[in-house]
Every structure is written in C-alpha cells, then in structure tokens.
Design a protein around this nucleic acid. Structure first.
Length: 264
DNA sequence: AAAACTAGCAACCGCGATTCT
DNA sequence: TAGAATCGCGGTTGCTAGTTT
C-alpha cells in the first residue's frame, strides 16, 4: 500500500503565488494561527495544497523573515555551521535569525559551494541526513537534463555517509581540552593528546579535527592519536576567530545534546 | 536582434520522523 | 501497538531575467 498523497492535486493551483493568495493566507493565519495545514487552505478559501501553504508561510510570508542580501557575517557563519552540521539547513537556519532553510540552501547551492570550490575549500559534498542512498527507480525521473552543470547535482560527489554524532572534543593550536561524557572540560597542552588520564580517555572516542589545509572536518579515532603529537597548526579555517568559533561550538554542543537526548 | 547560455530562487516532491487514533 | 495522518526536511525542478555569443 502506497503512501496517500497529502492532498488531492485535482483542481488545485500550483506555481507562483499571487498577491491575492498571499493576502488570504496572511489574513487567515493572523486570525486563526497556523496548525493543521491540511485543512487550512480550505478554511482560508485557498485552492492550494496544505503543504504549499505551509511552505509559503514558512519561507516568505512569516513576519519575522529577513529579506535581502546575506551579509558577510552571515555568510561566514553559514560556512562554519555547514562545516559542522553538513546539509542540515534547518539547523543552520535556526542560528541565523530571520533566514529560512530554503534561503540558506539556495544561497549555498548558488553561491557558496561554487565559491568554496574555486578556493579549493570544498572537496566533497556534505554529509546528508539521509542514511541510505535514494532509490533512483522509485524517484521521479529528471525531467530536464541540460548542460547547465550548476543546476545538476553531481551525484558522484555525494557521499551517503551515516550521520556521525561525535563525542564533543575540541582542539586549539596552542592548547586543547576535551569534554568528557560527564561534561567535564579537561585541559591539555601544546596539541599533544595526553594518555595519562586513562579514566578520561575511556570516555571519549572520536576527535574533531581538520585536514592540514583546512578543507574538511574529519572524525578520527582518538585512541589512535593518544600519546602522539598532532599537527594542530594548520586548522586556520576553524581557528582564525576563536570568539566566533567558540560561540558556534557552544551551539554545536547544545545541538548534540538535544539530538543525543532525542535518541535516548 | 535573436538564440543560447547562465544564475537566482520560488516552489514542488518524496520520504523520514512524529503524532494521532 | 499498529497503521494512518500530518509535519518538516532536504533534494530537485523549472521559470524568469540577465548575459553572452
């Protein structure tokens, strides 16, 4: 038995929204609030799918949406968050007030991925939420294949990795400390992983690191590096601004906690 | 001037996750 | 507790406007 469609497509408007439709939706939500998107269009007098209404509201009509160009600060934050979170646009958008996941996704695909590729800072596509490769037989066929490479996803570059939830660990060039599972921060020195504290070392398994030209973040088996020197000098991409990084990192820890709590 | 190409982005689609019955 | 209904997310499409040939 297949999944039922979210709504009947028969007789419904599709494509760009008119100002009248926007007004109807805005007026309805103003008076009744959101919720139950399936029945909302009918109650609002719209010939639209509920899903379409939700999308329109969330991405364009909501009063707190910030329109206009992405500022350099926002761009910087997007890059940093993307390096930590991958293509989890909603999480990234949640850290950029007034920006939507769709907007950030478009900005990434249209500007940043190309920009970073040109600068040699993007080697492969980010990890996605999907844990298994999509079944291309069940997906609809690409309707319009043209030679516009920017529009086509290079599936060869898409690596369908399992989402990796690392044990929080941080390295700084001149000193480092990691966070054990009990959330104690332990400081080390000079980028050398100290195996002296066996009780602590048993509590973490992975370490967030940078490749030596800052191109990507990898999760490595920390046990492999215990007692060895690490090259921590060339992590400029993440470490050039400790204040921003620290803020991003704290949010990252919170995200991990939320996700870990959900799993348990 | 017109066709071809490119970039930007709004909107749609399918599917996993969550909530409801 | 299973199945249905709904929500929300990320991937993808397709339209439009600008640029190049």
């Amino acid at each position: 038995m297949g999944r039922a469609p979210c709504c009947s497509k028969v007789g419904l408007h599709r494509g760009p929204w008119t100002s009248r439709e926007d007004a109807l939706l805005t007026s309805y939500i103003k008076n009744h609030g959101t919720g139950n998107w399936k029945t909302l269009p009918k109650r609002a007098g719209l010939l639209r799918c509920g899903k379409s209404c939700r999308l329109r509201w969330m991405n364009y009509i909501r009063p707190d949406i910030k329109r206009g160009n992405i500022s350099p600060e926002e761009e910087d934050l997007i890059i940093r968050l993307h390096s930590l979170l991958g293509n989890r646009w909603s999480l990234i958008a949640g850290r950029l007030p007034g920006r939507t996941d769709n907007e950030i996704k478009n900005y990434w695909n249209g500007h940043l991925s190309k920009k970073l590729k040109n600068q040699g800072l993007l080697v492969k596509e980010a990890v996605t939420r999907r844990l298994t490769p999509p079944d291309h037989n069940s997906k609809k066929k690409k309707k319009n294949i043209n030679n516009n490479e920017a529009k086509c996803i290079n599936t060869e570059n898409v690596k369908m990795n399992k989402i990796y939830v690392p044990k929080p660990t941080r390295i700084y060039p001149t000193y480092w400390y990691y966070v054990t599972e009990s959330n104690e921060e332990t400081e080390g020195t000079n980028g050398r992983l100290d195996s002296g504290d066996e009780s602590s070392s048993g509590n973490f398994q992975e370490i967030l690191s940078c490749s030596d030209n800052g191109e990507e973040a990898n999760l490595l088996d920390v046990n492999h590096y215990l007692g060895s020197d690490l090259d921590l000098v060339n992590c400029d991409f993440f470490l050039q601004d400790h204040e921003v990084l620290d803020r991003v990192y704290q949010e990252y820890l919170q995200l991990l906690n939320v996700e870990t709590d959900k799993e348990n």
